[in-house]
């Protein structure tokens, strides 16, 4: 990548020269006036390309104290940022819990490219192991899903991570998300409420 980016630095500088020369490279009106182009990146790309592969300082830095604060299970409102792109999920709502070591976040809604398909996205983090997983689970043609009932509070910070969430489908029907198996079942009428 270093060789490629080094070439880009040269290209950026040259294209910038061309733009500076005013040789028919006026920017489109569509983006509204003068916009700094590739030349503006040249210095930053050059800085990036000049980074070494070893540290001049070999002494270890002090590690911070491990801080693992549980997050009681709670619903996430529509003002809370969603990490999942709208191209994957049109979010209706979310739910989050952490016991300080492992974290689970569930986002419910519809598939980004097909609003009739109900979808949940499950984000898990294991901070001790340095692992993060993202799982997309489709429920079929249910319409957008929303989390209708979920374990809440401090008492379930660990147990809820493999528990169940009740989902309401676009047509009003209920489904169950089993976080243990990460599957959605449509026979919600037989599922136990969390």
């Amino acid at each position: 990548m270093l060789r490629l980016l080094s070439a880009r630095v040269g290209v950026a500088a040259l294209v910038g020269l061309a733009a500076g020369a005013g040789g028919g490279f006026a920017l489109a009106d569509a983006i509204g006036g003068s916009v700094p182009g590739p030349a503006s990146k040249a210095a930053a790309l050059d800085r990036r390309a000049s980074v070494a592969t070893t540290d001049s300082n070999t002494a270890p830095a002090p590690a911070p104290e491990t801080a693992s604060r549980p997050i009681p299970a709670r619903m996430l409102g529509d003002d809370v940022p969603v990490p999942v792109s709208p191209s994957v999920l049109r979010v209706r709502n979310g739910w989050l819990v952490s016991d300080g070591e492992t974290l689970v976040a569930v986002y419910a809604g519809a598939a980004g490219d097909e609003p009739s398909v109900g979808r949940v996205v499950i984000v898990r983090q294991n901070l001790a192991a340095g692992k993060q997983t993202v799982r997309v689970v489709d429920a079929g043609f249910t319409g957008a899903l929303a989390i209708a009932a979920a374990p809440l509070g401090r008492a379930v910070e660990t147990s809820a991570q493999t528990g169940t969430l009740r989902l309401r489908a676009g047509g009003g029907g209920l489904l169950t998300l089993d976080l243990g198996s990460e599957r959605v079942s449509h026979d919600a009428h037989t599922a136990r409420l969390p």
């Binding site: 040259l14 294209v15 061309a18 020369a21 005013g22 040789g23 028919g24 490279f25």
Partner: peptide, 9 residues
């Protein structure tokens, strides 16, 4: 000037 720019590109 245009020629210069084209050459650079």
């Amino acid at each position: 000037m245009r020629l210069l720019a084209c050459t650079v590109v």
